[in-house]
Amino acid sequence: MIGDRMDILAPILLQFLELLMALALAPLLTGWVNQCRAWLQNRSAPPLLQPYRQLAKLFEKEVVLAHNASSLFRAAPYVIFACMALAAAIVPTLSTDLPFGPAADAIALVGIFALARVFIALAGMDVGTSFGSLGARREMLIGFLAEPALLMVFFTASLISQSTSLSTIVSTLARGEFTIYPSLAFAGIAFSMVSLAENARVPVDNPTTHLELTMIHEAMILEYSGRHLALIEWAAALKLYAYSCLGLALFFPWGIPQAAEFANLPVALAGLLFKLGIGGFLLAVIETVSAKMRIFRAPEFLGTAFMLAVLAMLVHLLLETGK
């Protein structure tokens, strides 16, 4: 009897564990990337736990709202945070057997990111400052190319595994007979380009800038303060975490256990941390070696990513369908 109940309970518990772990680990990943970047750039690095302190401080602070900020402005941080938390929770990291999994497949995941994007852009336009609408416009410019590119990356994986369900995709890639998928090479490059753009990273945007000519993400959230800003910063960290886990799940899926058993947990967790550590370091390397593009190079950059993702699909149909 107890065993039966555990069979039902274990995945649900694990699901909540994944959500909590995402919430807890996301700022750590951001801190790690910042630290690596500082090392690579010969600066003295901020402590690893700096993002947590920042969040705690922001939650303590008072919220200052612009006079004409509407209720949408106050609601948006919660919506964005919830979207990102949900996205981070449905990406298989510790197990592929997630009870929330069927609620949203890969296409719906793209939808969640898009929903958050729309809300953050609207919030940017709400106060009616010149910077806010500038950021919103640029964010939507990046979004309209990054979103289909991401969708096409998922399509490639879906064509391989005959499914759009993230769990099935990951199990097929991780546990099927070993096969080399050249299409995933294309998809991987497209995915990296999209993630750089979506997470406001260097060649497209700079997360630390406040310079008028360059900022995108920062311009939209200029008017936020206190707990609202904390939620948005946390959501940004969650987004980076979700994208990293997604990249790992699609292109390096080895080590994600199938069944939701607690015995597998330590190994899976260690594997995840290891992979995230490497991924974060690589991100810092990319950010260090590349220069920020002009804003009008960004559509070209993302257009290239989109084309590569389409090409990935074609390569799959041509080389891997096996006639």
């Binding site: 080399i180 050249p182 299409s183 294309f186 290239t304 090409l311 390569v315 080389l319």
Partner: peptide, 24 residues
């Protein structure tokens, strides 16, 4: 079987490089 796949992979990389040249 695996050699075939390996050559396919190389072919894909060749194509990727061609596209990279196109976009460089």
């Amino acid at each position: 079987h695996y050699y075939g796949q390996f050559i396919n992979l190389l072919a894909a990389i060749l194509l990727l490089l061609s596209f990279a040249m196109l976009g460089q």
